[in-house]
Design a protein around this nucleic acid. Structure first.
Lengths: 195, 195
DNA sequence: CAGCGAACATACTGCTGAGTATGGTTCCGT
DNA sequence: ACGGAACCATACTCAGCAGTATGTTCGCTG
């Protein structure tokens, strides 16, 4: 618990961005405060205002970092040479679970920030394109595929705002605590009609 | 623009709650500030702290008001003696469009407030029950109906966090400006399989 | 008309978080 | 070794908002 007072705290600009990224995941955009980050990094605000002009500049850097990370992830999805479209969809769902807290924080942030909204909008465009391509490969006609892709995305992010109704009404004690909504195959069966 | 200095401003407790309700719809929970409401009502904070103990009490009153309004709306849906389940589903979608801004504000608020989360949770339970009953009436088996109901709800509220991709990628200029996502019949066709 | 209490105004405190000013380190090159 | 720049600490200002304390007006009642 004793803070290491060894010679240099010395925090770089990337360290600030990374710490802000973690706090963004934890507590959302309002949670990324200069003082909190400074305490977390073991320095003071003097360090921050050396590397950044103001708070919006840090937030803008966060948007850039997220955009790069997102395009990288979706690129690995697209370049992952898997001919089976259904397997590609399952990988998308698997990726969605990993990035869920960050994705959630970004979308909540985008509700009151035009720049964040634009970033999310752009990420959604490419994601929708990927989803729709998988669906067309599965035999859906083009307009139907785009509509189904948008519905899949909305149903996914809708989980951020709808608490799971586990318990009171439906008492069936699921053995592992997770219902069919976290099972990729059950979800795909629902969205693809029925195979 | 000249403030009416006619004898008594005299604002009641319900006026405060109503004004806070409007501001909640406009700018969400962080937007409902005492000073802003006082300016909107033409009074000062002295009035507020006469009718309310503190801000949490006002927010609690807002939750109560929303809960009552919600149960009333869903009751009119349930008591509306319409034997056709599909028509009942369309009415739910129609209701959803009216309450969209308020519903959105409530769910965003519920992300960082346990009381609001509980209120939304309760409202979702009854709404899910209603949706599931419609789906069972349409012939879906019980577990499938509950799952589809939850997916419908999530897809609906997911629209709050996913901006419509109208424009850049898909260039087809829709004549009325609205795509199939705002058309109840197209949505129902998608969720119910295909009739 | 006296006066009492409900309803509000005025003017304050206190806190929190962004932003600034300035001085003190540490390091690096010449 | 020394001067300057990168880097950070200290200590402040300022604005916004919740909450409080107390004065002030209105309306009613005896």
């Amino acid at each position: 618990m004793e803070a290491v007072k060894r010679s240099r705290p010395r925090v770089s600009r990337r360290d600030w961005i990374e710490a802000a990224y973690q706090e963004l995941i934890r507590a959302g955009e309002p949670g990324v405060s200069i003082n909190a980050l400074a305490a977390r990094l073991g320095v003071t605000k003097g360090s921050f205002y050396w590397h950044f002009r103001d708070r919006p500049e840090l937030l803008s850097a966060l948007l850039d970092r997220w955009a790069h990370e997102r395009t990288g992830e979706v690129l690995t999805l697209a370049l992952g040479t898997t001919p089976d479209p259904r397997e590609r969809l399952r990988r998308i769902l698997a990726l969605g679970r990993e990035v869920a807290p960050l994705d959630r924080a970004m979308r909540l942030w985008a509700q009151h920030d035009p720049a964040a909204a634009e970033a999310v909008r752009h990420a959604d465009r490419t994601m929708l394109d990927h989803l729709a391509s998988c669906l067309t490969d599965l035999g859906f006609p083009a307009p139907d595929a785009r509509l189904r892709a948008l519905l899949m995305l909305r149903a996914w992010v809708g989980g951020y705002l709808v608490a799971p109704p586990d318990g009171p009404s439906l008492d069936g004690p699921s053995p592992d605590g997770n219902d069919a909504l976290t099972d990729p195959d059950a979800l795909l069966d629902l969205f693809l009609g029925r195979p």
